[in-house]
Every structure is written in structure tokens, then in C-alpha cells.
């Protein structure tokens, strides 16, 4: 009985979660005329791949995918490395101003993006970082460093310091100790932080739209925003683009799902 209830609840929630996904796939497969036709069709009369073809022909969607992939992978990697070093330091040493550092990181999350955007644009222009993937990476790193550092700090605290000390006694320097001993133990946390950062970068719109406008540096969200035109929201192409854009994250997610569940707040557990 209890088991049945559980199955029903889980099933219902799965349905609620997946229905929008189903609907977006169906919309992406409908011919334009059928998207706006009554009564609504829950499966297209004739499946069409025109929206997908359009995506890869008119817009250089392949290039955008690649841009997004480069930016997200590099930024996520840098964020994770900085997070490991910073988090480890904050966890292992007590020093004057440690609380202030933590607070400074936490406050960054509260700053409304839109008051900083104008000045940030001028700064990026002065540094000649506009319209460059590298510029976008730098901003993304800055955006995510606080989160990754805080998470990593929590993670390090759960690892007995004795592990590292034992390694040092053996004559290894602190760095080697960290690499040999700490990193393997922290692997789930590292994986979780990495994928979290990746997803954030992959989906980020407002910064990308502000700093990127040349064709060859556009990322996926910027390109998708272009489908909203004054004339017509091209729902078919939008749906197709959504489907394509979600696939990489889903694949990545499926690959390291186990780490995420174990990892993400394990870091935050100790707050």
C-alpha cells in the first residue's frame, strides 16, 4: 500500500516534469501552420524537421554550440580550480579577516546584476574584452568563484586535517599533499561544482547578450534570444533550439549524476 502510494506520487511528479519537455519536442516537430491551429494536436499530423534544418542552415547554430561549449568548459574548469585552492585555504587556516572574506563572497550573490552591468560594460571595453569568448569566460569566472569557493571550503572541512598532516610528515610539501590526498577525496565535490558551474555558464543570457554581439562569438542563449523578433516569435525554431541546447547538459548530467547528488551540498553541509 505504502509502496503503491510512493509509485503514484513519483509517477505524477514525473509526468508534471516531463510534460513540458514533451510539449516542446512536439512543437519543434510541427509544421508552422500546425503550431497555430485549432484544435490543438498532441502529435503532429506530419512530422517535420524543418525547424531543425533552419537552425543549422540559416543560423550558424553549430558554431554557437561550439562557442558555448568552449566558454562553459573553460570557465567551469577555472572556477573549480580557484574554488579548490581558495576553499582549501579558508578551511585549513584561521587568519584575521577570514570572516570578512567569506562575507565578501556571500554579498556578491546579492548584488543586482543590472546596476553593475553598465559600468562593467565600460570596463570590458577599456580592457578590450568585448566580443571575445575570453572576456565572457572571465566574467563568468568572477560570477561563479564565490559559490565554488564556499562549497569547496565546506568540503575541505569534512576531510580530516590529519590526512594531510600525515602526508606532510612523510616529507611531502603541502601542495603535493593536497594533490595526492585531498583531491581524490574531494572528487565528488569537484565534479558537482564543475557541473554546476558548467550549467550556469551554458544557460547564462544577460551577460552574454551584453558583451557579445559579433556573429562569430555568439553563444547559444544569445542566438536563441534572436528568435524573438518584432514580427513573430518563431515558436517552432525556438522549440527546436531548446531541444538541441538542453542535450549537452543532459548528457553531462547523466554521466556524473551520482557525483552531484553526493557532492553538491555535501560541501555546504558544514555551512
Amino acid at each position: 500500500m505504502r509502496r503503491l502510494g510512493k509509485v503514484v506520487v513519483l509517477g505524477a511528479w514525473l509526468l508534471i516534469t516531463l510534460f513540458p519537455l514533451y510539449w516542446i519536442v512536439v512543437t519543434s516537430l510541427k509544421p508552422k501552420a500546425e503550431i497555430f491551429s485549432m484544435p490543438l494536436k498532441y502529435w503532429p499530423d506530419a512530422i517535420t524537421f524543418e525547424h531543425y534544418a533552419e537552425l543549422f542552415s540559416f543560423a550558424d547554430f553549430g558554431a554557437y554550440l561550439l562557442n558555448s561549449l568552449i566558454v562553459s568548459l573553460v570557465a567551469a574548469a577555472v572556477v573549480t580550480v580557484i574554488g579548490v585552492i581558495g576553499g582549501h585555504t579558508l578551511a585549513r587556516f584561521s587568519f584575521p579577516g577570514r570572516g570578512a572574506v567569506m562575507l565578501a563572497f556571500l554579498v556578491t550573490q546579492m548584488i543586482p546584476l543590472f546596476i553593475a552591468l553598465g559600468p562593467l560594460y565600460l570596463l570590458m571595453s577599456d580592457l578590450d574584452l568585448l566580443n571575445r569568448l575570453a572576456g565572457l569566460m572571465l566574467v563568468y569566472v568572477a560570477m561563479l568563484v564565490p559559490f565554488s569557493t564556499i562549497i569547496m571550503r565546506g568540503f575541505c572541512e569534512r576531510i580530516p586535517a590529519a590526512l594531510e598532516e600525515a602526508a606532510q610528515v612523510d616529507g611531502a610539501t603541502r601542495l603535493v599533499a593536497m594533490l595526492r590526498v585531498v583531491i581524490p577525496v574531494m572528487l565528488p565535490g569537484i565534479a558537482a561544482t564543475f557541473i554546476f558551474a558548467f550549467v550556469q555558464c551554458w544557460n547564462e543570457l544577460f551577460l552574454a547578450i551584453t558583451f557579445i554581439d559579433s556573429e562569430d562569438s555568439k553563444t547559444i542563449p544569445v542566438a536563441m534570444n534572436s528568435f524573438i523578433t518584432q514580427y513573430d516569435i518563431d515558436w517552432g525554431s525556438m522549440a527546436a533550439a531548446t531541444v538541441v541546447s538542453v542535450i549537452p547538459t543532459l548528457v553531462l548530467f547523466a554521466a556524473i549524476r551520482r557525483y552531484i547528488v553526493e557532492g553538491l551540498t555535501a560541501g555546504a553541509v558544514k555551512g
Binding site: 573553460v74 577555472v78 580592457l127 578590450d128 574584452l129 566580443n131 571575445r132 569568448l133 575570453a134 572576456g135 569566460m137 572571465l138 569566472v141 559579433s214 562569430d216 562569438s217
Partner: peptide, 11 residues
């Protein structure tokens, strides 16, 4: 590395 990346970006 990040600075180099920035300097020789796509532009």
C-alpha cells in the same frame, strides 16, 4: 593563462 586567453581572443 586567463590574461593570455583574453589577449588573443577571437577578435
Amino acid at each position: 593563462a586567463t590574461l593570455v586567453l583574453a589577449a588573443c581572443g577571437s577578435g
